[in-house]
Design a protein around this nucleic acid. Structure first.
Length: 427
RNA sequence: GGAAGGGUGUCCGAGUGGUCGAAGGAAACGGUCUUGAAAACCGUCGUGCCAGCAAUGGUACCGUGGGUUCGAAUCCCACCCCUUCCGCCA
């Protein structure tokens, strides 16, 4: 959430920025509650002070009847005002939590994802001297994807992945872990992009897949709930991204300067109900209820947060370049960056089988907004957090299958992955 | 699933209903001593909120919520969480 003091001082700006993101919040109403709340706090504390003074007089000695009567009167008054305060405070907090994070000034203003701005195109769309197939056609012919049996067992939007596709996934995972734990790899990227950040390697993490309601809400990623899986028996949710369980890992902790940046590379199977997407992306493995991702997560300070964001994007680009997959880079507009985020980038891979660019990775920068809700502090203040997908494995495999397909319906293995898949050049 | 124990400040850990924002220790920071370091000694050492330009003052916080009381870390109730043992199990 935003700092109330900041909102008081910049009411018009916050109102405007919220509107740009598409959020209907009434800042004046919020400030009204804030004013009322502060008046009541003054009243309550004044009464408490009187009570404390009275109590101090009777320390160690038996209070007189008069003092007890006075004490009773004060107690009743305090209780009365405390109830009034609690009611106002509740409304105040609900409203405060609906205020989205402010976008940075260079984020383009837009009403939907259609207004995201392309900032870069890398590589030419792959050309074939035959009609390219979609990943679904190739993979189903190969026996790599079986959605029919998955539907029988688990329902729609699930799949069995089999054979060489599984090998390919594990190859990508191992390749990525090797790269992100390699200081030299990071050094090269940092130098190339002229970033003022540490070359500290990422720590690989296998996180829990479940998350408590309270923590999910503090991450500001619980909504929309219709898109989350809930395990009622235990009052926990299945995480919808490794971000949810990695970003919250240090909740309610203080972090020393010397430990910054904190960098994690998490691998997790994630779960989304994909509510509202019925009939969309039904081909292949575009939009599964369950999908695997490698996620980068870092905690920094105010000074290095933005460069860290640039680093994560640069890493994503580098990985795509090493796989030799054409992509474009989009600067997300205000409507698309998401409530807790201050800035965001998308990487869309070129998919010949779809004849279009499709979102493959995303990177979000969060400033201290989220830290405020999680009470995440470092020794000089509130931490800034960054989240970015290193590889959404399903989407990456779609991109590999479609870009590396042969006329015979096989798939060449990207050079950098060959060592991880037993030296095979084609699957 | 059965049984037991426990949640106090950065950490460990004490705490008869008023003298407890809280002993003691450790860590950290500053200093003395030392060529330097260690040790020793001295000092500092929680957070939120409200008011204030500030100094500062006030208030709250001992898992969470409620209750008893003139007064609660301390008593009562409910809940949450953690740990250990047994059982089951990849």
């Amino acid at each position: 959430m935003l700092d109330i003091q900041f909102i008081r001082d910049n009411a018009d700006l916050v109102q405007e920025k919220s509107k740009q993101k598409g959020y209907e919040v009434d800042i004046q109403q919020l400030l009204g509650f804030d004013k009322e709340r502060r008046e009541l706090i003054g009243k309550v504390e004044e009464l408490r002070q009187q009570r404390n003074e009275l109590t101090a007089q009777t320390k160690g000695v038996k209070p007189s009847d008069e003092q007890i009567a006075k004490g009773r009167e004060l107690r009743d008054k305090v209780t009365d005002f405390e109830h009034k305060l609690a009611a106002i405070e509740k409304e105040y907090e609900v409203l405060l939590k609906t205020v989205p994070n402010m976008s940075l000034s260079d984020v383009p203003i837009g009403k939907s994802e259609d207004e995201n701005q392309e900032v870069k195109k890398q590589g030419e769309p792959t050309k074939f001297d035959f009609e390219p197939k979609s990943h679904a056609e190739i993979a189903e012919a190969k026996g790599w994807i079986d959605k029919e049996r998955a539907a029988k067992v688990a329902g729609s939007r699930f799949a069995y992945l089999k054979g060489d596709l599984v090998k390919l996934q594990f190859a990508i995972i191992q390749f990525t872990i090797d790269k992100l734990t390699d200081t030299e790899f990071l050094d090269a990227i940092i130098k190339e992009n002229n970033l003022q950040v540490s070359n500290k390697p990422f720590t690989p993490v296998l996180p829990p897949y479940m998350i408590r309601t309270e923590v999910y809400d503090a991450m500001d990623r619980l909504e929309p709930r219709e898109d989350r899986y809930k395990l009622d028996q235990d009052d926990v949710w299945l995480q919808g991204s490794a971000e949810h369980v990695l970003g919250s890992m240090h909740m309610r902790e203080g972090i020393d300067d010397k430990d910054l940046p904190v960098r994690y590379l998490g691998y997790a199977t994630s779960f989304r109900r994909e509510a509202g997407s019925y009939g969309k992306d039904t081909e292949g493995i575009f939009r599964m209820h369950q999908f695997d991702k490698l996620e980068m997560e870092s905690i920094t300070d105010e000074n290095t947060g933005l460069d860290e964001h640039k680093l994560l994007v640069a890493i994503q680009e580098k990985l795509m370049q090493e796989l030799k997959i054409p992509y474009r880079l989009l600067e997300k507009c205000t409507a698309d960056i998401g409530k807790p985020n201050a800035k965001g980038m998308d990487i869309d891979a070129w998919l010949p089988g779809q004849n279009q660019y499709r979102e493959t990775h995303t990177a979000d920068y969060m400033t201290d907004y989220q830290s405020r809700r999680m009470n995440l502090l470092y020794s000089k203040g509130l931490a800034h957090t960054n989240d970015a997908t290193a590889f959404a494995l399903g989407r990456t495999m779609i991109a590999i299958i479609e870009n590396y397909q042969t006329a015979e319906g096989n798939v060449n293995v990207p050079e950098v992955l060959q060592a991880y898949i037993g030296g095979k050049t084609q699957i």
